[in-house]
């Protein structure tokens, strides 16, 4: 069958495409293998978080004791709170900055260096995180010495920075999909530029902004490498705490905390997709 590229995009092409693909030898087998190795470890982790036993390899019976233990553990509670504080604050800052960047690059007309600006905003996604982490560590050490300022602010700043490209992508995608005529119509109906933004651009952009915020939140919540290097004493986030516990062997308690973390992350990502599909 010839591929009707360009003539009938969307559904038609996709259906024939996937049917062709499914006829390839080993297609089903490979698919199942990929799914197995992606999700079996997670499934094992979740299952053993409900195990009434110290072991994480031998099942005895169902119990919630490790969840109780995890929630009673002061260190876990403290690091979870720090994680939330960092993630929420960084998300707010990153989303506001990403929204402004998206507006400038998608609606600001053709200014000099626009392509460069877009590339610069997205570049952090391509730089190895360990490089960013070490660079941030040394840069912040200098700044800390110069200013004498210490505290959680530095960690929040580092998170804000690496969250920006994640927040930027869905916001800019939404803005590019949005015809500029809505904003023209508002301006035509006597809305000054900031009123256009408040009454038309922002409400229509909201699904993209929410999606961007949630991606940023999840990325911040999950971060290990940059946090590990930048966080000061007493600034242990949940992933760092888990990492510390793992060094002494995997315990069901860690499984329980990880399961909660997975649940939160999955919920956020699911919500993101739902918001993106809404009004499309």
């Amino acid at each position: 069958m010839t591929d009707p590229v360009g003539k009938k995009p969307g559904l038609f092409k996709r259906v024939t495409g996937s049917r062709e693909l499914r006829r390839q030898p080993l297609f089903t087998g490979i698919s199942w293998l990929v799914l197995l190795f992606l999700y079996a470890p997670v499934a094992v982790l979740i299952v053993f978080s409900f195990n009434d036993n110290r072991s994480v390899v031998r099942w005895t019976e169902f119990s919630l004791r490790w969840y109780t233990a995890a929630l009673d553990n002061g260190d876990i509670r403290r690091s979870a709170l720090i994680s939330l504080e960092v993630a929420l604050t960084a998300t707010v800052f990153a989303t506001v900055i990403a929204t402004m960047a998206a507006l400038a690059t998608a609606r600001g007309g053709a200014f000099r260096g626009r392509s460069a600006a877009i590339a610069l905003i997205n570049q952090p996604l391509m730089i190895p995180e360990i490089v960013t982490a070490i660079a941030t560590l040394s840069f912040f050490s200098i700044l800390r010495q110069l200013t004498g300022v210490t505290g959680l602010g530095w960690l929040i700043l580092a998170h804000t920075v690496f969250c920006i490209p994640f927040a930027y992508m869905p916001i800019r995608a939404r803005l590019s999909d949005m015809p500029a005529t809505f904003e023209e119509a508002a301006a035509d109906l006597y809305a000054a530029p900031w009123q256009v933004f408040r009454h038309v651009t922002l409400p229509l952009l909201m699904p993209g902004v929410m999606a961007g915020a949630m991606l940023a939140f999840v990325v911040s919540l999950d971060d290990v490498i940059i946090t590990l290097l930048v966080a000061g004493p007493g600034e242990t986030t949940l992933p760092i705490y888990i990492l510390g516990q793992i060094r002494r062997g995997v315990t069901p308690e860690v499984n329980a905390v990880s399961t909660i973390l997975i649940a939160v992350t999955v919920a956020m990502v699911a919500l993101t997709f739902l918001l993106q599909r809404k009004r499309k």
Binding site: T181, F182, A187, D188, Y190, P203, L204, R279
Partner: peptide, 27 residues
């Protein structure tokens, strides 16, 4: 545009999808 006493009916209408008919008209 917002300083001109001139209004436009757009080719694809460009009605605000997040507002009711009445709010569109009153905008």
């Amino acid at each position: 545009p917002h300083e001109r006493p001139v209004n436009t009916v757009f080719q694809n209408y460009a009605l605000f999808p997040h507002m009711s008919v009445a709010r569109n008209i009153g905008f």
